[in-house]
Every structure is written in structure tokens, then in C-alpha cells.
């Protein structure tokens, strides 16, 4: 199973709709980095509205993908993390300290726009 990555001008948009298993997560990480490399995108929004569980492994993959994209010059914003998911992450002791967040896709785009000074 592959997670589709959409391109919109300089941005890449991803909406994760499925239950993510470890393979899908790792595949997604590779796909996204390849896509950033190919398109030269400067901003990425990953929308997690439909994701109802993030365990420590998925959290690690997401955190890593943010750092890796940063290295490649693309700023990533995570959007739509559900309250239940946020509370679970806090209980797990995962704070994703350096990961920018926004309430929804729209505000994620606004945030990217502001940060990239576009």
C-alpha cells in the first residue's frame, strides 16, 4: 500500500487515510524524500485528520521525516492530529518538540506560507 503524495506549486500535500503499518510508514518516508528531491518542493503538509493511532514507531518515522525533509530544504507541517492521538502521544512521552503543527490543512498552508516568506 502506498500513500499518495500530491504536488501543488512549491508544496507537497499528503493526507494519510489508512491504518499505517510499519512498512507503509517506511515506504512513505522514502517516497516523500524522493519526491522532494525530484520536485524541489519547499513546503510539505502531512494531514493526519483520519489517523486514529500513532504509536512510538510511527511517531519516530514522522519525526524523522520532518528532520530529513528539513535537511533537504523542505519545511514540513503536521496537521489535524486528533485529540485522542495527541493525548496518547503525551502519555507515551513523545512530544515531537521540533515538529511544526497546525489545526488543519488550510492553516498548515498558511503557516508554511508565513515561514517561507512567500
Amino acid at each position: 500500500m502506498r500513500i499518495p503524495i500530491l504536488k501543488l506549486h512549491n508544496y507537497l500535500l499528503i493526507s494519510i487515510q489508512t491504518e499505517i503499518d510499519d512498512q507503509t510508514a517506511i515506504k512513505f518516508q522514502e517516497d516523500l524524500l524522493a519526491k522532494i528531491h525530484k520536485t524541489g518542493a519547499t513546503g510539505v503538509v502531512i494531514d493526519l485528520t483520519s489517523v486514529d493511532i500513532i504509536d512510538s514507531f510511527i511517531a519516530k518515522v514522522l519525526g524523522d521525516v520532518v528532520s530529513m525533509s528539513d535537511l533537504m530544504g523542505a519545511r514540513v507541517v503536521l496537521t489535524g492530529i486528533q485529540p485522542a492521538v495527541a493525548m496518547t502521544l503525551i502519555d507515551l512521552g513523545i512530544h515531537l518538540q521540533n515538529v511544526p503543527t497546525a489545526l488543519d490543512l488550510e492553516q498548515g498552508l498558511v503557516k508554511l506560507h508565513q515561514e517561507l516568506g512567500g
Binding site: I81, P83, V85, A86, M87, I90, T101, G108
Partner: peptide
């Protein structure tokens, strides 16, 4: 602090 961090995670 935990509440504040959770709020940040959901994007506020």
C-alpha cells in the same frame, strides 16, 4: 505542561 504540549500537537 502536558496539556499545553498536547495542544501544540494538535496544531494550536
Amino acid at each position: 505542561i502536558q496539556a499545553a504540549e498536547a495542544v501544540r500537537l494538535i496544531g494550536s
